[in-house]
Design a binder for these strands. Structure first.
Lengths: 138, 138
DNA sequence: ATTCTTATTGCACCCAGTTGCAATAATAGC
DNA sequence: GCTATTATTGCAACTGGGTGCAATAAGAAT
């Protein structure tokens, strides 16, 4: 958990809200929505304001302690230990699958060649149907 | 402008707000943000409520009269006559480039093969650097 | 342990977008 | 052209997320 060290090293303070949020994201080792994080923190420390939570998440992201993945309809956070990757969320059952970082390489190449456009796909969240739900729907 | 006919055919009413909004999107023949649409409508008819505008846009989208493209940081609308495509917006100069519908085909294929996951990329908005800005930045 | 500095917090308010509901207006039937 | 029906609207209130600022507390120095 060198995250605390990272923050200290930058002259940032180790406050209770920061500790709680970082521990939660680390221990969960999973993808969390802002809502889940807010609910958890409020369960333990009701006096912590939501603005503090959003500011903390922003700070953790800036310092690369957590990664934030956002798409039109959902934003999720996960601990930096889990590395860079993209996410697929099943719109039926909610199942989340991580997938490899270079998934969009062909698209990036194609945009560069055809339009000279430089796009860096990072932490993309995609909605769709997982195998099981696709077959059930048939 | 068969859009009006489309709406009529479904028993939907041709109200003034709908006429104004649809005409604007059609005549602009361009990508418009919700804000631009709201400003325009308010300029002409100050009494039209923003909720009406959002509801109208939603309705036009459901009936495929306009297409909505959304990403984390921007939502844009354009007339259905312009067809399906994706958008690249330069994060420096704001320039917007349309690009072909099948851009994400390799990604869709790869997700299907590796994970059995079914994602349909439609109206994706990407942020990045256009050729000019990329070169200026060095 | 106390004091001081200033990073961090809580608060109260802002913003874009959404929703429930009663009031209004578009249109079908006369 | 009127009337009745009901789709649509305006309103007011709500949502998730964000911001400026005065109050608070972390941690350095004593």
């Amino acid at each position: 958990m060198s995250c605390f060290a990272t923050l200290k090293g930058k002259g940032l303070r180790l406050t209770q809200p920061r500790r709680v949020i970082l521990d939660f994201i680390h221990d969960k080792g999973d993808h969390l929505t802002a809502e889940e994080i807010i609910n958890y923190v409020h369960g333990k420390f009701p006096r912590v304001n939501k603005s503090t939570i959003y500011r903390t998440l922003e700070l953790l992201e800036k310092n690369e302690c957590v990664f934030k993945s956002e798409s039109m309809d959902r934003t999720i956070y996960h601990h930096a230990e889990e590395g860079h990757h993209h996410h697929m969320v099943c719109s039926k059952c909610g199942k989340t699958i991580d997938c490899e970082e270079d998934l969009f390489a062909p698209v990036e190449r194609s945009l560069g060649e055809k339009y000279g456009f430089n796009v860096d796909f990072k932490h993309v969240v995609m909605s769709g149907l997982c195998e099981r739900c696709k077959n059930l729907t048939g």
